[in-house]
Design a binder for these strands. Structure first.
Length: 875
RNA sequence: GGACGAUUAGCUCAGUUGGCAGAGCACCGGCCUCACAUGCCGGGGGUCGCUGGUUCAAGUCCAGCAUCGUCCACCA
């Protein structure tokens, strides 16, 4: 082992072990394997995507869970796949074409799709390679793609079934239209952006009304007021002849509850063709629809002299024209939220058009019930409320998209009879009249296929062993940003088509932000590349950092210092392992059985068991940060800081082979437990070290398939813990005296330990050489000792410690130290005395609390007395 | 306009059932002690955002306020 570097080198370890795991088939899953099924279906990254922080975080969490369950004897499947990401991918390829000066129309549908497929083939494998780099233990052989034959068949099956049950319908409604992307968008795909605009007050004959969209005036088919608004009651039901930009127009006045009488003038113009509210008002009052803005964002022929003009240009012009005619009352600046396309940020135009919809209410109901009843558990709980709110107010889902890249809607139009035929198989002739057919040109919203993911990837609609074993899946790990887009739809589809919820748990994690707390984005230039981080600090340090910062409900601020700290942690482990491995020569477990474990051996085993319990508890409740912190504290601050230092004594003294063997055994066992505990977080370094540990020949060949440590009740050793606590307290007290009295570490101190009443003196006598070695002091333990003159006093747990000071230091420092300690004790005494002096506390608090406080008070009083006497003796 | 979250050490954040306020980093002092200076030992540092309330006891529960953030929403 001496030839091994004192620096842990991830670049040597990581690629080697990942390849080995893959070669041995450890990622592979088998539905007929024994063990309780545990399945995670991953959120599919975009097929042409690159690994970003969000992926890294998401996949690290999933990998930790799956590695934990795999080691713990579950039959695991981590199902991976990629998403065709309709609008996003099409957008990228269209941009590529634009650079060549071409549009998708230039190519035509077929050639364009060929181009997208080519792009998918070229860049499709990248994300998988990057996820392997992260250590992700997905079953890569089961990789799926949303546009695979199998998954496409699932999409069609669902579409047809829902159509047959009339849960899918087609109709003319007002939709969100993106004039840039030339497609309809679902409500979720419209984002709100605050923009500055103008609030224009237009005169409508005797009425005045405000609008931010004067250009839609050309599409007005009514004005509306609130039914109870007395100011305008006389006009309701009348038709007004009013002057306008193109001469006089006739306009009806209707009364509708949708009008807020307190806003503006209390009168609104009704443009059913270009506003969702107005569309509804129009339906209620049977108003005609006038479409004055087209799909290209330009004014239509119906806009008269403005025809062909861009909608925003028209806005300016029409205001100018109305001003010239004296039709503008006034204009006020106005800041408001406008809907924009989530991809290209173009202002969305509400337009009436014929689209396909999913009737969501009947699907949402069971999905709400599933969460309410606990069938689906959302973690952290707070997100359930968000889910309910959206689900209870859900509106029908626009599923058609005027894109080319995606699942084409399986509907055929017959031009002769005007009917629509929806079919599982491609139709070539009209089933009723035998005439020619056209397939609907639209494709489905990407999220339609994503919504089927938990069962389509497992083989549905066929009845497969995978579905039988792994559905419902165990846990879905995802970010809160896609609860509606994805989680809600999977819940609805799963319940509808499988008759069962798609997952038991939904673990919602937060967002990874930069060190300043800003969202990472390309435009801000603050994107941290996970691959760069892994190159620099190693994958294990990166993963551990993500886990350690994954506190529920809070965003992760990723700072390099933190990652560096965990790189140091990996290095600490590496060096601890070097110490152990380089002192194993001649190790014979049979020899160890001849000796008894020391208090330190018993203590570290007890502490290891505590760490096991804590890590399991934390992982079982998705508290990954607690789990990471428990391993960190145990490994560094208990195993390394104390046990390894203690172990050196018997390791380096070879004259007691039995004691040495006992220590070796404890080291090997504890290190083994720690590595297995750590493996889900730091898979590479844990494997590399574990492989070097002595272990039974018939045991597992890799830590990946070794068992996750179980807490054994008998490993908890309260007595050993109490004794070690006293030893640690005494050693720390002597070190503190050395440091504060400015005594060189080279000086061997002389210390007397006087066990206090109730303390097992014999155990301290036994531990004297050990404490002496750790504190660099000659220690005598004497229950009857009196404090020697010219000595420092410390009151540790279970004992008083006197350290001789003559000749090593001037006593002023010690006096100062004592004075400070006395002050501290005095403050405690005042606080506790006051508390115990209040009858209500003594009478009403639980007896054990009162007793504890009494004990503390007595202890502090004793300490103060001792210290005061000591101070007096020093002067 | 609603809903949710946050506010704890210089910084970034844990803190579960109300019972002695924690970690990492930074800082100060001392150490290159034969696993590790990516290290070791010791130390300083807090009115738990503000105001009330419940309680023997509040960082923790309740009400209100302030500031910041996020999501949702058809007030044109």
């Amino acid at each position: 082992m001496t030839e091994i570097s004192d620096r842990y080198d991830p670049t040597r370890v990581e690629p080697q072990w990942y390849a080995e795991w893959e070669r041995r088939g450890y990622f592979r899953s088998d539905p007929s394997a024994p063990g309780k099924p545990y399945c995670i279906v991953c959120p599919p990254p975009n097929v042409t995507g690159f690994l970003h922080m969000g992926h890294a975080f998401n996949f690290t969490i999933q990998d930790i869970l799956i590695r934990y369950k795999r080691m713990d004897g579950h039959n695991t499947l981590w199902q991976f796949g990629t998403d065709h990401a309709g609008i996003a991918t099409q957008y990228v390829v269209e941009r590529q074409l634009a650079e060549e000066g071409k549009t998708r129309e230039d190519l035509g549908r077929e050639a364009f799709l060929a181009r997208v497929w080519k792009w998918k083939e070229e860049s499709g494998g990248t994300i998988v390679k990057q996820l392997k780099r992260l250590g992700a233990s997905c079953d890569w052989e089961r990789e799926r793609f949303t546009m695979d034959a199998g998954l496409s068949a699932a999409v069609r099956e669902v579409f047809v079934r829902l159509w047959e049950e009339q849960l899918i319908y087609r109709g003319d409604y007002i939709v969100n239209w993106c004039p840039r992307c030339q497609t309809v968008l679902s409500d979720l795909e419209v984002e709100r952006e605050e923009r500055d605009g103008e609030f224009v007050y237009i005169k409508y004959g005797p009425l005045t009304l405000g609008t931010v969209r004067p250009e839609t005036k050309l599409g007005d088919t009514a004005v509306a007021v609130h039914p109870k608004d007395r100011r305008y009651r006389t006009y309701v039901g009348k038709t007004l002849e009013i002057p306008s930009v193109e001469g006089s127009i006739a306009i009806r006045v209707v009364a509708d509850e949708a009008v807020d009488p307190k806003f503006g003038t209390g009168v609104i113009k009704v443009t059913p063709g270009h506003d969702p509210t107005d569309f509804e008002i129009g339906k209620r009052h049977d108003l005609p629809i006038r479409t004055v803005i087209g799909f290209d964002g330009k004014m239509t022929a119906a806009a008269g002299k403005y025809a062909g003009m861009d909608r925003f240009e028209c806005r300016k012009r029409i205001v100018e024209d109305m001003q010239a005619l004296g039709l503008i009352d006034r204009i006020e600046p106005y800041r408001h939220a406008v809907g924009v396309c989530y991809r290209c940020k173009t202002v969305v135009e509400p337009l009436v058009s014929k689209q396909w919809y999913v009737r969501t209410k009947p699907l949402a109901e069971p999905a709400i019930k599933a969460v309410r009843s606990g069938k689906i558990k959302i973690i952290p709980r707070g997100w359930a409320k968000t889910y309910y709110h959206w689900m209870e107010n859900i509106r029908d889902w626009t599923i058609s998209r005027q894109l080319w890249w995606g699942h084409r809607i399986p509907a055929w139009h017959c031009d002769r009879d005007g009917e629509v035929y929806v079919s599982r198989t491609d139709l070539t002739a009209c089933p009723s009249c035998g005439g020619g057919l056209r397939q609907d040109p639209d494709v489905l919203d990407t999220w339609f296929s994503s919504g089927l993911w938990p069962f389509s990837t497992l083989g549905w609609p066929d009845s497969t062993p995978e579905l039988k074993t792994f559905y419902p899946t165990s846990c879905l790990v995802t970010g809160f940003d896609i609860i509606f887009f994805w989680v809600a739809r999977m819940a609805m589809f799963g319940l509808k088509l499988m008759g069962d919820a798609p997952f038991h748990h939904v673990y919602i994690h937060a967002l990874v932000r930069d060190a300043e707390g800003r969202k990472m984005s390309k435009s801000k230039g603050n994107v941290v590349d996970p691959l760069h981080i892994m190159d620099q600090y190693g994958t294990d340090a990166f993963r551990f950092t993500l886990a350690a910062m994954a506190a529920q409900g809070r965003d992760v601020r990723l700072s390099e210092e933190r990652i560096e700290g965990n790189r140091n942690f990996a290095n600490k482990l590496w060096n601890a392992a070097r110490l152990v491995l380089s002192n194993l020569e001649g190790y014979d477990p049979r020899l160890a059985r001849k000796g008894a474990p020391t208090v330190a051996d018993r203590w570290i085993r007890s502490r290891a068991a505590a760490a096991v319990r804590e890590v399991r508890r934390a992982l079982d409740t998705y508290r990954l940060n607690d789990a990471a912190s428990a391993v960190y504290q145990f490994l560094w601050h208990e195993l390394c800081d104390w046990y390894l230092e203690i172990a050196k004594r018997s390791l380096y003294q070879k004259d007691d082979p039995v004691a040495r063997a006992v220590t070796q055994q404890t080291l090997v066992e504890t290190l083994d437990t720690t590595l297995r505990l750590l493996h889900p977080f730091m898979p590479f370094i844990s494997e590399d070290i574990w492989q070097r540990l002595p272990r039974p020949a018939d045991g597992p060949a890799s830590i990946m398939i070794a068992s996750f440590p179980r807490p054994s009740r008998k490993a908890h050793d309260a007595e050993a813990e109490a004794r070690m606590d006293a030893i640690i307290a005494i050693v720390s007290a002597i070190r503190a005296i050395r440091s504060e009295s400015r005594i060189s570490p080279a000086v061997e101190l002389a210390a007397i330990v006087r066990p206090r009443a109730g303390m097992d003196a014999a155990s301290l006598v036994e531990a004297a050489p050990l404490m002496g070695a750790l504190a660099r002091a000659a220690i005598t333990v004497d229950p009857a000792a009196v404090r020697p003159p010219q000595s420092a006093l410390a009151v540790a747990q279970g004992a008083e410690v006197y350290v001789r000071l003559e000749g090593v230091v001037d006593l002023a420092a010690e006096r100062q130290r004592l004075a400070k300690e006395i002050e501290r004790a005095a403050k405690e005494i005042v606080f506790l005395g006051g508390k115990l002096g209040r009858p209500d506390f003594v009478e009403r608090a639980p007896a054990e609390i009162v007793a504890r406080e009494r004990e503390r008070l007595a202890e502090q009083q004793a300490i103060r007395e001792k210290l005061t006497a000591s101070l007096a003796a020093l002067s």
